[in-house]
Design a protein around this nucleic acid. Structure first.
Length: 470
RNA sequence: GGCGGCAUAGCCAAGCGGUAAGGCAGCGGUCUGCAAAACCGCGAUUCCUCGGUUCAAUCCCGAGUGCCGCCUCCA
């Protein structure tokens, strides 16, 4: 049974999809006015893992992740750079896809753009006006929050408390400070569309309403995003959709915690962010993912060089396990008793991994299961009475494949790369030197191998070659 | 001010009623010609504090302290 924590009910709930065997997910994608940072990456990776896991559990998953390509910040950026908003959006939309791929995030099934759904936005705004839940004011259109049943149910706020909050912008155009803009009157910002209410551009929130409706239909299964989107963004999506259509928007609301830097939220407005693409210059996508998944997705996680450094060391040995397996599988078979313990423990460890992931996608615990699995494999190889007979070789091979497959659910690509012939030749040469106890030559060759980015280890069963992991 | 979350070994981090996973670092050992490697073993007797519920609490309830987030754009 898969359990998911639902922000709406503030409880872990059993996951039951609307259509048997299928899951529809909508994740709030980026506003493309700059490169996305590692905190944004956390969200994309968390959703990627949820998607991969649900697929592993037999669901056919449809993931929609929008691109917000019209927005104040894009317009501001365009002004500063002396470009058109469209050009800015295009540049960073392309960069977004590049960075996703670099992080090992599978491309979402559908990547709708806000600007390609203006007509649909007009429709829902029109419907809201018709229902007297929205009003026109000096060329802008606002949502009338007082007409929304249960406003605040997602973020668990109530209207009175919100109104007493001092931080809400007061606008003469709004009936209430809580009302939010659906359509903004054009102010010659270089991007606008005609509408029944005059020239203008869409406000936030509405795009997600219409794109989720168009590609997934309401209600769908899972709506996700960063915890900071709970209010007002997701609250306002619910307000619009449920008021306009009377349908529930989504069943499960999943929100990931923030990536902090120095204990503080990483954000573009605080200017304390690290770009995903810059981090990737220093660390591999495996390491970045390993680090980001080492804490539960709902917990805050602090990005420090030390923490990521730990991830590098921890992850390396996980990856190296496969080289150790591959190295042993190469050796000639010998006679001896079969050892069934690896196969037995493998089943238990896979179950541990699945149980962890079933429980609200507990990747931290799932990673622990991977380490247990890797340790079991290495321990087996090291056992004095374990021999490479046919049965044991098959069991080892299966264990290695299983470890690779489970890791792939978290998006870790661990596999023993084919060792280049050149390195193999060096290793053979080294073995010859070792056999004649020519340690000087042997160590020299080891050094050469290392300089070429590989490592060689001597074990009772012979040399093991592996690529050094970064 | 309102709402929400978090406080677990030197560091990171699971656990959410039955007596503390995993990783990094450290220490001891095994293996090795050597080894930076690998493997094995060792580490929390206040799980922030104080009360309470319970046969039993890190886990539930209350109070307190300290952090963080949201209430404005934000993954």
């Amino acid at each position: 049974m898969i359990k998911i924590y639902n922000t709406l009910t503030q409880k872990k709930e059993e996951f039951v999809s609307l259509t048997r065997g299928k899951v529809k997910i909508y994740n709030c994608g980026p506003t493309v006015y700059g490169y996305f940072h590692i905190g944004n990456a956390r969200n994309f990776i968390v959703v990627d893992v949820i998607r991969r896991y649900l697929t592993f559990r037999g669901f056919e998953v449809t993931l929609v992740q929008n691109v917000t390509d019209v927005y104040d910040k894009i317009i501001n950026k365009a002004k500063v750079e002396n470009l058109t908003p469209t050009a800015v959006a295009e540049t960073f939309t392309n960069a977004y896809f590049e960075d996703l791929e670099a992080l090992g995030v599978k491309a979402p099934d559908i990547n709708p753009k806000a600007t390609e759904h203006i007509k649909e936005m007009h429709d829902i705004i029109g419907l809201l006006i018709e229902k007297d839940a929205a009003y026109v004011s000096e060329g802008d259109v606002y949502m009338d929050v007082s007409k929304v049943k249960d406003y605040g149910k997602l973020s668990h706020k109530n209207i009175e408390e919100l109104q007493s909050g001092a931080r809400i912008e007061v606008s003469e155009k709004k009936k209430s400070p809580l009302d939010f803009v659906l359509w903004k009157k054009d102010k010659n910002e270089g991007i606008s569309w005609d509408s029944p209410w005059g020239k203008g551009r869409p406000g936030w929130h509405t795009e997600c309403c219409v794109m989720s409706q168009k590609y997934l239909q309401h209600p769908f299964d899972i709506h996700s995003g960063g915890i900071d989107l709970v209010f007002p963004h997701h609250e306002n999506e619910i307000a619009q959709v449920e008021t306009a259509t009377g349908n529930k928007l989504a069943n499960y609301w999943v929100h990931n915690g923030h990536l902090n830097i120095g204990g503080q939220k990483m954000s573009k407005s605080l200017n304390n962010f690290l770009l995903a693409r810059d981090i990737l210059k220093k660390y591999s996508k495996n390491i970045v993912r390993f680090f980001l998944l080492s804490a539960h997705y709902r917990s805050p996680l602090d990005f420090t060089e030390e923490n990521v450094g730990n991830a590098v060391k921890g992850f390396s040995e996980l990856g190296n396990t496969l080289y150790r397996v591959a190295g042993i599988l190469n050796k000639p078979l010998t006679d001896g008793p079969a050892d069934t313990s690896l196969a037995e423990k493998g089943i238990a460890l896979e179950a541990k991994f699945v149980a962890a992931m079933d429980d609200d996608f507990n990747t931290a615990q799932a990673i622990a299961a991977l380490f247990d699995y890797a340790n079991e494999i290495k321990n087996t190889i090291k056992k004095k009475d374990w021999v490479l007979n046919y049965e044991n070789r098959e069991a080892l091979k299966i264990a290695g494949e299983k470890l690779t497959a489970l890791s792939a659910i978290l998006g870790f690509k661990i596999e023993a790369e084919k060792i280049p012939a050149e390195i193999e030749a060096l290793a053979l040469e080294r073995e010859t030197a070792r056999n004649t106890k020519d340690w000087v030559k042997s160590d020299l060759i080891r050094k050469t191998i290392e300089e070429k980015g590989f490592a060689v280890e001597d074990t009772p069963k012979g040399q093991i070659l592996m690529r050094k992991i970064k």
